[in-house]
Design a protein around this nucleic acid. Structure first.
Length: 549
RNA sequence: GGCCCCUUGGUCAAGCGGUUAAGACAUCGCCCUUUCACGGCGGAGACAUGGGUUCGAUUCCCGUAGGGGUCACCA
């Protein structure tokens, strides 16, 4: 019995690896082109960290003329959920991130290096596992869960490292004949890597983000093929990233400690290892402690949360880009209207340690992003959001021509208003502009300094009768409010009032506030001139009448 | 517990042996202004800690503390 015969016994149907090596030739790309991927598991709610990862990868690939692809890591059937792939694809689409290759829906993919779904690559992994056995670098292991538990218990009692390694690897040194015998007898087994690493020796690695790190060599005989015939992450990583030609692996830094294993695997199987970039984790503050944003506990961990809240995906991307490369913020200030795609992202400039996800800052970024949008864009995005989450807003927006005017108030100025951070803010921001909402509802009038009914009515009446003209330009319009103020015994200028408070009842600002409140039911609104222009004379008169009653 | 990574204001962060230790968000005050927002000006606020090395450490080395990760037939 030799290794080859053992390998044939275990994987009688597996192809030679040369078949796959030829089927998936090395990519022909220009010098410096980076092939990079995001490899999520279809386990439900897509994590915002996956989006972070994908965004960064997309940039790296684009900037270097490389390839960005999506690979689905579904080798753990227990955790898989139905429609998981669709969710991932949808989330990427929501954030406007397009892959060059990979899954495009639950079953289909694009690109020449597929399947891009690991559960469909079983034959491939088995061929390479067989190859490992032929090389004498992998072997069948017959340990039952109970035996493994027993080994662990002994190790803990002896206060030594736990795991399946060295003298503890009880099936590692079975003779080939013994192995074959058990297999023929139908004893269940899995396939393990036969590690020649030594725990007392160090391995150095230069990570693109973390820099130089040093670890003990791996000496664990880790499982490469599970009892269901599918590979573990470690083995799938080696085979897939080799075959798919990945040049840079970005992944969360929880993987950093398995770098020695992966490097060892690449070396033992004889493939060139990719470079690694371990990205920092997104954290959140939990009672004074930092911790990883968790899918289970934190709604904001889900990529879909941002859609639901109506936070523009561009805002989320700008915020994340800021975390990725802090120079982004400066660049953005200098290139206010440039596309985020033009920013020169540097993987190696990424922060080494995890950042607390700051919703307040996101909100600020979002306000700026939205302030750059045209009325039409705000309209389209709000409508898209409202169609899923807010019927009343849909109803309001369905009056498109009018809504565009409303959303256009103080938009496009040099210093645009920044009062919308989320699409869910829009309704409250504009609802008072709609007559059918405003006139037909019970209305609060939070008058301020001037608050006597009689006086208010006098102001409203006189304004309409004598001063209001819808064709006035802004200056004339405001001059008239000053005139109105003067006629009724209010100071025409605030400064004048402040200098001589006893000579006047109040000042022009207070009069304006009366008009504003009567018109909108609010003390805080955008520019009143523009509001009145949009409202038009009929509406203004109706609103004043309502206020008087 | 073993191994590994990290530690600059409340938060995100520049900084690579000599700086008055940037900037952004948040916060406070003032100004602009018919309100709010925007904008402008200004304030408060930081190098976890103890040892080295050095003429000089936020920056380099070691220890300590704190935080995080990882030790599966999960990824």
């Amino acid at each position: 019995m030799n290794y080859k015969e053992l390998a044939d016994l275990i994987f009688p149907d597996a192809k030679e690896i040369s078949y796959y090596e030829e089927k998936y030739p090395r990519r022909n790309l220009p010098e410096g082109a980076v092939v990079i991927r995001v490899a999520p598991s279809p386990t439900g709610n897509v994590h915002i960290g996956t989006i972070f990862q994908a965004m960064v990868n997309r940039k790296v690939a684009s900037q270097t003329g490389g390839v960005f692809y999506v690979r689905i890591e579904d080798t753990d059937q227990k955790r898989e959920i139905e429609g998981g792939i669709t969710q991932i694809i949808q989330s990427l689409k929501d954030f406007d991130i397009e892959a060059d290759e990979g899954m495009i829906n639950e079953t289909e993919s694009k690109g020449e290096y597929g399947p891009y779904r690991q559960s469909l690559r079983k034959d491939i992994y088995q061929a390479y596992a067989k190859y490992m056995i032929e090389l004498g670098k992998a072997y069948p292991c017959f340990a039952t869960p109970e035996e493994l538990e027993e080994i662990r218990a002994k190790q803990e009692a002896a206060k030594v490292r736990t795991g399946y390694y060295g003298v503890w690897a009880k099936y590692r040194n079975l003779s080939l004949e013994e192995m074959a015998e058990k297999i023929k007898a139908g004893v269940p087994y899995i396939v393990r890597f036969k590690s020649n690493g030594r725990e007392d020796k160090k391995i150095k690695h230069k990570d693109i983000i973390k820099g130089n790190v040093e670890f003990p060599e791996n000496d664990q005989d880790i499982v490469i093929i599970k009892s269901d015939g599918l590979p573990t992450y470690h083995f799938a990583h080696i085979v897939d990233d080799h075959l798919m030609g990945t040049t840079v692996v970005t992944r969360g830094d929880e993987w950093l400690s398995s770098v020695p294993l992966h490097l060892q695997l690449f070396q033992e199987i004889g493939f060139k290892a990719p470079r690694y970039a371990h990205t920092p984790t997104l954290l959140k503050n939990d009672n004074g402690n930092k911790r990883k944003i968790s899918k289970r506990k934190d709604p904001e961990a889900a990529a879909s949360y941002y859609q639901e809240q109506g936070i523009p995906s561009l805002a989320v991307k700008e915020y994340l880009m800021n975390i990725a490369n802090s120079s982004f913020e400066n660049w953005r200030r200098q290139n206010k209207d440039a596309s985020i795609d033009d920013f020169d992202f540097q993987l190696n400039k990424m922060s080494v340690s995890g950042a607390l996800f700051d919703m307040v800052k996101l909100n600020d970024v979002s306000k700026i992003v939205v302030s750059r949008y045209t009325a039409q864009e705000v309209y389209d995005e709000s409508m898209k959001w409202a169609e899923k989450y807010d019927n009343e807003l849909v109803e309001m927006l369905s009056n498109k021509e009018y809504s565009l005017k409303v959303l256009g108030i103080e938009r496009g100025n040099v210093k645009p208003r920044k009062d919308i951070a989320k699409w869910s803010d829009v309704k409250d921001n504009i609802i008072y502009m709609y007559d059918d909402k405003f006139l037909n509802s019970e209305q609060e009038y939070p008058y301020q300094t001037i608050n006597e009914k009689q006086e208010i009515n006098k102001i409203l009446d006189l304004y309409i009768e004598k001063y209001y003209n819808e064709n006035d330009d802004k200056q004339t319009w405001f001059d008239k409010i000053k005139e109105l103020s003067g006629e009724l015994g209010y100071a025409k200028e605030v400064k004048e009032f402040k200098a001589n408070p006893d000579m006047y009842k109040a000042h022009v600002g207070d009069v304006s506030t009366v008009l504003r409140v009567a018109l909108t039911g609010r003390t805080n609104t955008p520019d009143m001139y523009e509001i009145m222009q949009v409202l038009g004379k009929d509406s203004i008169i109706k609103r004043f009448e309502k206020a008087k009653n």
